[in-house]
């Protein structure tokens, strides 16, 4: 009986867990001097809808830039990606239930948790949208801003005007059931 209950609970939990290993994160810095944009299409995320817990894992060197020099400066001068090769987020998504994810629609959600970049953890609160399409595909999207100074990322004075004080970040995850 206990075994059967445990098996059913485990199966129920597994049904409410979603993942992606090809999630998309992009960031954009815009100043009068220069626009800087980078994309990462290899972001891992696991979302436990029943518990409302979501996690993201990002490899810093997987960001690609249009220009090689920007990519080199990003990794070597600003992100110290040999010392801090990963960024991550762990928090909660509120505003959508496992039951709602069975029905096509668009659901506004609130995301709250801790984001770690450059080895420095900071609280993060963001709004987002979870969209369920007619085929049952689940997409979660969110935009938020990150300040390099909040994560102890030092911008040399010579290029301070080239990099925005707030970097705009966009996240897009297409989840599948685990």
């Amino acid at each position: 009986m206990i075994l059967a209950t445990a098996t059913i609970s485990s199966a129920t939990l597994a049904q409410d867990r979603y993942m992606t290993r090809t999630g998309h994160v992009e960031f954009h810095s815009s100043t009068s001097m220069e626009d800087i944009h980078a994309d990462n299409d290899k972001v891992t995320s696991v979302w436990d809808v029943s518990a409302g817990v979501v996690e993201f894992a990002v490899l810093i060197k997987a960001f690609t830039f249009e220009k090689a020099l920007m990519q080199e400066h990003f990794n070597e001068n600003y992100m110290d990606s040999n010392t801090f090769p990963k960024a991550n987020f762990k928090g909660n998504i509120k505003g959508v239930s496992a039951e709602q994810l069975k029905t096509a629609g668009s659901y506004p959600v609130a995301v709250e948790g801790k984001i770690t970049i450059h080895g420095v953890e900071q609280p993060l609160i963001a709004k987002g949208t979870v969209t369920v399409d007619a085929t049952g595909g689940i997409r979660a999207e969110s935009d938020f801003a990150v300040k390099p100074s909040d994560h102890d990322i030092k911008i040399p004075g010579a290029v301070r005007k080239n990099i925005a004080e707030e970097i705009q970040v966009k996240v897009r995850m297409d989840y599948t059931k685990m």
């Binding site: 993942m19 290993r21 290899k42 891992t44 995320s45 696991v46 996690e55 993201f56 894992a57 490899l59 060197k61 997987a62 690609t64 090769p85 990963k86 991550n88």
Partner: peptide, 14 residues
Amino acid sequence: TGMNDLIPDVIMVR
């Protein structure tokens, strides 16, 4: 570019 967390995939780009 390394091994990711959560799902331990090794990632190669370009």
